[in-house]
Design a protein around this nucleic acid. Structure first.
Lengths: 207, 207
DNA sequence: CAACAAAATAAACGATCGTTTACCATAATT
DNA sequence: AATTATGGTAAACGATCGTTTATTTTGTTG
């Protein structure tokens, strides 16, 4: 039976997320697929090409998800008008969506863990990790909260704190939830805690 | 000149935190020390022994720091009376201390990054990472907040939220701050943001 | 200063790495 | 039915890995 590129990506991603890119050998990947390592080079030019293809695949998935969840998909600098139509309540609840996606979706969870393991290995990988997992989402929320403050959708307390720190408060809760999930803590319990924390956040700053 | 065990630990830790344990070769460590790899085996029985010695060293440093910062050093289960004498304000400010330590102290920062890179490689390493960097500190704060609630040092809002979620709120801010620092964002700016967030936290829940 | 222990060296070990090569099977296209 | 991609195998490539060995240099001590 023939092995598809997608099969290889999934198997490789799983291994990369558990052991790190360098520690996964081409023989390992091939073995899990039931082929020999030489066959991998029919689909990808080298090991690095597998990694790059995983990144590309994730970008697609991420964009698809933003569209179905109807939150802004492009950068704030490109089309700020997209950021004007999101309401506070919906965006707070989107945090729970993000938790479900980044912990529950197998590809997304493995991808996130893989980037965690790669982040310090080069400036490029650090940039990638920060853009997709840390700074990126924080900046994204900051832009949204900035718009909301401007349109008086948030209360005076929120205005005092400012968009950036609001973004940090909300996102930090999501980030910790994911770290606890990685640690094997009961996912449903974490989810409930996160829901309460997000709810508190919403009540605290909603106009 | 003779190379000390401590020299080797510091050089190895630096490399482990940048590339991950598996990707660092014994020749690399030796080269940075200006010796040959065979000489490493006069000080450590094998590569794993270097890793284990780093862990041991960090445990010592962590304990020393807890003592000088006069926060509880032993587990809550062992001696809960230690947890009864810490006040809310001091502990909130200790969060800033923790940020300075885990981002600014070279050994601590490298150690934290090393564990980040190792966390998914075995259940034991995951346990180590969670105990020292995530779940451990959260549980630690939870126990402290539990005592504070019991002694009416916190307000009714805090009682409603509960010790665990209070711990999550405070610790998540620290955790995100460290992630942003790893990403190369300006440390002083992060520190200021963290200070404000912690201050808000304190005002929100102090009796 | 001689003696001894500790630290470092250079070389070799088998194992495994990523990649390339030459050859074979299968399925699709002409 | 012949041809041609396509995906696969097995073996070999040089490089590097962690570790061990035999030998030499370096420091300290009696």
């Amino acid at each position: 039976m023939k092995t598809s590129k997608e099969d290889i990506l999934i198997v490789a991603l799983k291994l990369f997320s558990e052991r790190g890119f360098d520690a996964v050998s081409t023989s390992m990947i091939a073995e899990q697929l039931g082929i020999t390592k030489g066959a991998l080079y029919r689909h990808f030019k080298d090991k690095q090409d597998i990694f790059d293809s995983i990144i590309e695949r994730m970008y697609e998935l991420d964009r698809e998800r933003a569209e179905t969840d109807s939150v802004p998909v492009s950068d704030y600098e490109e089309s700020p008008e997209e950021y004007e139509s999101t309401d506070f309540k919906a965006f707070c609840e989107f945090t729970i969506n993000q938790f479900d996606f980044w912990s529950g979706d197998e590809f997304a969870a493995s991808f996130r863990r893989m980037l965690i393991l790669e982040q310090f290995k080069s400036p490029e990988k650090m940039q990638l990790y920060q853009d997709m997992i840390v700074k990126g989402p924080v900046k994204y929320s900051e832009n949204l909260f900035g718009e909301m403050i401007r349109k008086n959708m948030l209360n005076s307390k929120a205005r005092g704190i400012g968009a950036r720190r609001l973004a940090m408060e909300l996102f930090s809760a999501l980030s910790l939830a994911l770290q606890l999930d990685d640690g094997g803590e009961d996912r449903e319990r974490i989810r409930e805690d996160l829901k309460v924390i997000v709810e508190e956040f919403r009540n605290r700053y909603s106009a």
